[in-house]
Design a protein around this nucleic acid. Structure first.
Lengths: 205, 205
DNA sequence: ACAATTTTTGACCATTTGGACAGAAAAATA
DNA sequence: TATTTTTCTGTCCAAATGGTCAAAAATTGT
């Protein structure tokens, strides 16, 4: 089941195809709702073949979650000293918003996992993620103390950016239902304009 | 299976017990993840007994969702003309935040449902809910036009209130993991202070 | 007290589903 | 080409699970 030395090209490709199919399935129906059969079908192969590559449904799920996590926190990693702190925070917010727009399935998968207690991510949340957030919060707190941005709790500021940007991906059905079809086309432009103005007002010293 | 005239006291009580148990189960594991057996166990009765009262697992879920929806949108219903528009919006935000604090299971159940496409709520979202939101958005737009609050897109303002308040209930595991145990005790006080300041800055003309 | 009705459950069933297994097909290696 | 290894699937199985059913227990009405 496991490749001993290095993964062959075909192995890498197949695993990729399966992960893509699984992401679609999991984000639609969650871990329990998604079936191996559906994943196999989306991936264009037989059910045992999927098991052959990953061992179990759980393994696919966990694997996917882990590999996506790095991508997911990258924008926060990149938040750093800048000529203009306010612009830096706005850039971070915009990158998160863009991720909601471009990767709604990933966003939904994380949301579902955390919503249900994050049984497979808890250690990482209070480990790596906490360290990262604390570090960036300290940076923001410094900006705040130096009067470069408004005095504000940096942890909650980060939560608010997560909440507002991911909302557009996770609850897209609701957002679109409430706004109506007419405003659906340039929804993310609207969101960008709104959030930019919103955070500028909140953060300007 | 169905009571013909009026529900007896015992019927009302049993249904209530089942709904409470089901809310706990569904918010933990979702519709598919929650089992009739678990619901029955939490409710302190046998599995067929649960079916006797509701007919099916699906029926419990749908019933629950419908009855909770009214409670859920009540704070928005109550948003109305006020001596101080800014205060009115802040009150709305605070009531939503309090609901996250007091009813996290309800919040999670809605979140899961919408996240997975809201198959049983779609009509209500683009129907009743849209009407309600449009109405309140018009009110906010008027305040905005009269210069009583800042110029801001009212729909997105409402989304931002939903997003930021519900975030504390839906993603509590993540929030608590990142903040650490020390700040867990008065988390909602912190959130209240942060959000109040935040929205005041954003909305002040 | 007795009959009728409602409530409650144990036993059972059909379906779904994760995944094991043996072996076929294909590819790599010699 | 022959052999070894890897890839792939049809078939099957056991566990989980939503729901049925007949009958027991409890309650209600007279």
């Amino acid at each position: 089941m496991n490749s001993p030395r290095k993964a062959t090209r075909i192995q890498r490709e197949k695993r990729e195809v399966i992960l893509t199919a699984a992401l679609e399935a999991f984000s639609e129906d969650g871990l329990r709702g998604a079936t191996l059969e559906k994943i196999a079908e989306k991936a264009g192969m037989s059910k045992p073949h999927v098991v052959y590559y990953f061992g179990s449904k759980d393994a696919i799920y966990t694997d996917l979650l882990q590999s996506l996590l790095e991508v997911w926190v990258q924008p926060l990693r990149d938040l750093s000293e800048d000529a203009d702190p306010l612009a830096a925070i706005l850039t971070y917010m915009r990158r998160k918003l863009r991720m909601s727009q471009d990767m709604p399935r990933e966003s939904k998968m994380f949301a579902t996992e955390i919503l249900h207690g994050a049984p497979r991510m808890r250690p990482q949340l209070s480990g790596d993620l906490k360290v990262l957030v604390d570090e960036k919060a300290a940076l923001i707190a410094r900006w705040s103390a130096e009067g470069k941005i408004a005095k504000i709790d940096p942890h909650h500021l980060i939560f608010s950016i997560w909440a507002m940007t991911q909302h557009y991906a996770d609850f897209d059905i609701q957002v679109e239902a409430v706004l109506g079809d007419a405003r659906k086309a340039n929804l993310y432009d609207e969101a960008d304009a709104f959030l930019t103005e919103f955070f500028v007002r909140a953060l300007r010293p």
